[in-house]
């Protein structure tokens, strides 16, 4: 009674769930989704309204509704589909070639330590230089046609895949190699039971990076040697001051990138069944 000691205070936790309405709970569970969607919608609205009111220069930035109608117009043109076909062909061929060469080579180079030391400087050099800088050289070698773009796509993806692969082989857990050796595993079995599985996450990382690099290769290759393809569509639209068409072209690349990476995540997931699930973003 007489003591001047402060009264006891209740311990509070901001995440206390006791007094929440169902709506609040629903929002809590879907917060990222709700906020993300409102972010996208808000952005599009601001763009549209800004453009209509003249705050944003339509001349350069167009507006979402215009881009949508440009998209509708484009997809009815045979030329557009021809551009798509060319770009897809360049991407698929170059990327596939890179995958089937870079993974085996990376595994071999990583496994033989001294070989990897010898190749390191070259890998490092090529990895440090933007592969698109090689476009003029590639054009010199194989001409302005589709081959030079395939070559750029290939180079872009190849180094993105091979470098993590080499690194993956080199960082295989020594203890597991010891286990294989102690049970007398053959070289082949050591590779399939230890080196392969341990390297998969590195390879998929490389494949994911490679998609981005390959797309850049497609665009810059087409911008440099303008024959046909979606990169050319972007440049032409830009030259003719058709920002709606141009943004449509850019968005195609955006969605291809997102789709490609999402597809690879699936693959990664499949290979990562043995890994404890971690809360990834």
């Amino acid at each position: 009674m007489t003591t001047a000691s402060p009264a006891l205070r209740p311990v509070r936790n901001e995440r206390d769930r006791k007094h929440r309405s169902p709506l609040q709970r629903w929002y809590r569970n879907h917060e990222a989704w709700v906020l993300g969607a409102s972010g996208v919608i808000g952005f599009l609205l601001l763009w549209e309204l800004g453009s209509r009111s003249g705050v944003v220069d339509q001349f350069f930035f167009s507006k979402p509704t215009d881009i949508a109608s440009a998209a509708v117009r484009e997809v009815q043109l045979a030329r557009f589909w021809n551009d798509v076909k060319v770009s897809v062909w360049e991407f698929v061929t170059g990327y596939t070639l890179a995958v089937i060469t870079a993974i085996p080579l990376g595994l071999i180079i990583g496994w033989y330590r001294r070989l990897s030391y010898m190749i390191d400087p070259w890998l490092n050099l090529f990895n440090s230089l933007p592969r698109i800088a090689l476009i003029p050289l590639l054009v010199l070698w194989v001409g302005l046609g589709v081959e030079s773009k395939i070559a750029v796509v290939f180079l872009g993806a190849f180094f993105s895949i091979i470098i993590p692969t080499v690194q993956g082989v080199r960082t295989v857990d020594r203890r597991l190699l010891d286990v294989a050796k102690s049970f007398g595993a053959s070289q082949r079995l050591t590779f399939t039971s230890v080196v392969g599985p341990a390297t998969v996450p590195f390879i998929t990382t490389g494949l994911r990076l490679g998609i981005g690099r390959a797309l850049i290769g497609v665009i810059v290759g087409e911008i440099y040697a303008q024959t046909s393809g979606l990169g050319v569509l972007i440049v032409r639209a830009n030259e003719n001051i058709q920002p709606d068409r141009m943004f449509f072209g850019v968005l195609i690349f955006t969605f291809s990138g997102i789709l490609g990476v999402a597809a690879l995540r699936r693959v990664e997931h499949y290979f990562d069944r043995w890994r404890p699930v971690s809360e990834e973003r």
Binding site: R175, L176, D178, V179, S193, V194, P197, A198, W274, R275
Partner: peptide
């Protein structure tokens, strides 16, 4: 410890 192959 941890010498089992995590992927098997």
């Amino acid at each position: 410890d941890s010498s089992l192959f995590p992927w098997y």
